[in-house]
Design a protein around this nucleic acid. Structure first.
Length: 566
RNA sequence: GGGCGUGUAGCCUAGUCUGGAUAGGGCACAGGCCUCCUAAGCCUGGGAUCGCGGGUUCAAAUCCCGUCACGCCCGCCA
């Protein structure tokens, strides 16, 4: 099974067993048993390398002797065609016919499941992401949140986890109260802005109210009424739903959907928040009617002087509820939430409850500084995606004058959002990004269109070939063929390795996709498929089919579309 | 001032967790490749004291200590 579902790991494990067997023979009494730590050698030095230095010093035997003993006293491990000592390393070359046979058969049999785990893991996961305040449209500064969150959710599912993605709707705080106050009290001249989406229109209530210093008292009064359950206030707060609807649409544009929406107000109405306050009261200090906890020598306020609640206490109630519904909670949060998140963890500790795992990302800033809804120095996600689509449209029109309007549109809509996702996910989350249009809209090199283009070439070859069946593993001997096959073989290991709860390395999925596409483009240059003689023709056709399949599988993890023609 | 994070060619970035053989890529730049399955492609070239200084090690971009620069946070906002 492993041979087909994870060919590279299968061969690697064989090599490790072979080495460890050799070690046992060399030093039977050694405890604990010596492990084989394989690494990837530089280009041209084979496929696996065993550094001998550490073992040599442990056994007090020279690296040369160890290598010599291993090489002379044992049969070759399965799937290895050549072994050679080079300096302090023992290098292994994978037999390409063996690898080709396993890998192509694996992909052909497993198809869209290749790379993914069949083994269902225990434990329900709730992955919370985005959870942007519904007071305006999503902006690029925080666009990493949904993209990272959605990609991790896809990765976890591919590894057999049961994942629910959740949006925590902050409908009960100052931000939404500010929006509501503006809606009730401002008379805005709409003649200039006629945006069709509610989030883009209503954000002006929030922005303009934020500029009025006198509005604060009214906003607080409104919030107090709302928390006290005043029906009119509750009705007015519903305006946030239209904004949320706009945010949901923006997310759909980039292929993201949440499984669940949980509204903060639910915990206010159910009495959960009040119950948590009561539980924590014995640990709290009080001041003018407000409540606060001392955590790490800092005062963390739970309620205001007027009795209304603060974010963190509602967040505690939310997490208590969340852990009733799951075993593992993962939150995707901006780096500005680090302190709050740590404090939340301490409070959950205090209550003897589980804590969420948190993945933080740094902001995407503008050259002029941080984006801010309040100040309005901002690039909205909708605008970035629209711009990306229209640039894609221009490119397709230019390159493919033969296509009809409808096809052009379909392809542009596959390229635009994918390019945005790709360019954001390819950088690891903790790195800060300065937003530049040229970079965000890059369609060359390490980008989504590069992979989409290679995929389109695959599709085109396969369309022209018609029905082809079977392959001859021994006929694929060209360097570009072997290179692509090796890349295909490592996909399942990659999917498994990067799935780390503490530090999921989803950015490496783009590296893989890029490697595969680049390898394929070299193959495309070196190895004609349609004009090749049998059995080379069908073998190459099988390889092209496999590249297409694995490209799609990886694209699925990244939430990218593959239009199949460009 | 304290906490967390980041620093790799002109610009962007992988590798850092788990130390190993000439530090991978991309953009930009210079040159070459469409009578040949889509040139959003391919090939060649120049360009890196891995922020800086110590230390540990047979071996340091990677681990430890110090230091500097930048970002985020330190609110009865979220």
């Amino acid at each position: 099974m492993l041979a087909q579902s994870n060919p590279w790991l299968y061969i690697r494990k064989g090599v490790e067993r072979w080495i460890e067997g050799g070690f046992s023979a060399l030093a039977p009494k050694q405890k604990p048993k010596l492990r084989a730590k394989l690494e990837q050698p530089p280009e041209g030095m084979g496929d696996f390398a065993l550094p001998l230095f550490e073992i040599a010093s442990k056994l007090k035997i020279s690296p040369e002797r160890i290598a010599e003993t291993l090489l002379t006293e044992n049969e070759r491990p399965p799937g290895i065609s050549k072994m050679e000592r080079a300096g302090g390393y023992l290098n292994f070359w994978v037999d390409s016919e063996y690898l080709t046979d396993m890998t192509l058969n694996g992909i052909i049999n497993l198809r869209r499941d290749y790379g993914f785990s069949f083994e269902r893991k225990k434990g329900r996961i709730i992955l919370e992401h985005t959870s942007a305040n519904p007071n305006g449209p999503l902006h690029v500064g925080r666009a990493r949140n949904p993209i990272i969150g959605d990609t991790i959710a896809r990765l976890l599912r591919a590894n057999g986890y049961d994942v629910t993605t959740e949006y925590y709707v902050n409908d009960s705080g100052m931000q939404v109260a500010t929006l509501v106050w503006g809606h009730l009290n401002l008379d805005i001249d709409w003649s200039e802005s006629s945006h069709k989406k509610a989030d883009h229109r209503y954000v002006r209530y929030y922005q303009e109210t934020s500029r009025l210093p006198d509005s604060e008292e009214g906003i607080r009064k409104l919030l107090k009424d709302y928390e006290d359950g005043d029906p009119e206030a509750i009705r007015e707060f519903k305006i946030h739903e239209e904004v949320l609807e706009g945010i949901i649409q923006s997310l759909e544009e980039i292929n993201i959907k949440h499984d669940s929406f949980v509204h903060e107000s639910k915990f206010l109405r159910s009495g959960d928040v009040a119950a948590v306050v009561e539980k924590l009261r014995p640990f709290c200090k009080s001041e003018d009617g407000s409540l606060y906890l001392e955590i790490d020598a800092e005062n963390v306020y739970l309620t205001r002087r007027d009795g209304t609640t603060l974010y963190i206490i509602r967040d505690v109630a939310y997490h208590l509820d969340k852990f009733k519904r799951c075993d593992i909670a993962i939150n995707i949060l901006g780096e500005d939430h680090k302190l709050e998140s740590k404090q939340l963890g301490k409070i959950l500790d205090l209550l003897g409850k589980k804590k969420p795992l948190v993945i933080f990302y740094s902001f995407i800033s503008l050259h002029e500084g941080k984006m801010s809804t309040r100040r309005g120095n901002i690039v909205y996600l909708d605008d970035l995606v629209d711009e990306s689509i229209s640039r894609a449209r221009e490119e397709v029109k230019k390159r493919r004058p033969d296509l009809d309007e409808e096809s052009v549109e379909r392809i542009a809509r596959a390229i635009g959002p994918s390019a945005v996702r790709y360019n954001i996910i390819k950088v690891q989350p903790q790195k800060q990004i300065e937003f530049r249009w040229e970079e965000a809209l890059s369609f060359e090199g390490d980008s989504a269109p590069f992979a989409q283009y290679a995929h389109a070439r695959c599709s085109s070859i396969l369309r022209k070939l018609g029905e082809v069946e079977g392959f001859e593993p021994g006929s694929l001997i060209n360097d570009s063929e072997i290179r692509v096959i090796k890349t295909l073989a490592t996909f399942p290991s990659l999917v498994e390795e990067i799935c780390d709860f503490e530090r999921p390395r989803v950015h490496l999925l783009t590296s893989f996709l890029y490697d595969l596409a680049r390898g394929f483009n070299q193959f495309y240059r070196d190895c004609p498929v349609i004009k090749a003689e049998e059995p080379l023709r069908s073998s190459r056709a099988a390889l092209v089919m496999c590249v297409k399949q694995v490209t799609e599988n990886c694209a699925n993890l990244l939430g990218l579309e593959m239009p199949g023609e460009m």
